[in-house]
């Protein structure tokens, strides 16, 4: 696996709120696991990145995607649905990371095969604890799909 060979883990963060994106970046920078965090701000860019289209031709395929739900142009539910119906992309774990606590969002995204659903706490320390837990579980213990 990547981490055993010291290869950085490639993370795609799909987030339109610059404050949240920065916080997430900072939190992952401080982590123990070497990673590259790529940030895109809307759903159209996210799918272009994943499909290596246009400006994203030379980008690596992400090992894991952190996906906000309310996004410009194409929302997170659509991105998730397209990913999980795509024969190549469906195996990439998708962590929903959103402020929405709406039952229908939780139900719908699990039905669309989101790998898990996490809500963003408003408070800074709790937010950092969430990112730390993602790092500690997903980047440290989980076997991510090999490329």
């Amino acid at each position: 696996m990547d981490k055993e060979f010291g290869m950085p883990i490639e993370i795609l963060l799909v987030e339109d709120n610059p404050g949240d994106a920065r916080l997430t970046q900072e939190a992952f920078k401080e982590g123990k696991i070497t990673n590259n965090l790529h940030v895109v701000q809307d759903g159209v860019e996210a799918l272009a990145f994943l499909r290596k289209e246009g400006a994203y031709q030379n980008m690596p395929r992400p090992d894991i995607v952190l996906l906000d739900l309310n996004l410009p142009k194409k929302d997170g539910r659509e991105v998730l649905s397209e990913m999980k119906q795509d024969l190549v992309l469906k195996r990439i774990p998708v962590v929903i990371l959103t402020t929405s606590k709406a039952e229908e969002d939780i139900l719908k995204t699990y039905n669309l095969h989101a790998n898990c659903y996490v809500t963003k706490p408003v408070e800074l320390e709790e937010f950092l604890a969430v990112i730390k837990s993602i790092e500690n579980f997903w980047l440290t213990f989980v076997k991510l799909p090999p490329k």
Partner: peptide
């Protein structure tokens, strides 16, 4: 910690 403190489960 991850699944039962942070993840929403149905």
């Amino acid at each position: 910690e991850f699944w039962f403190s942070f993840v929403h489960i149905l």
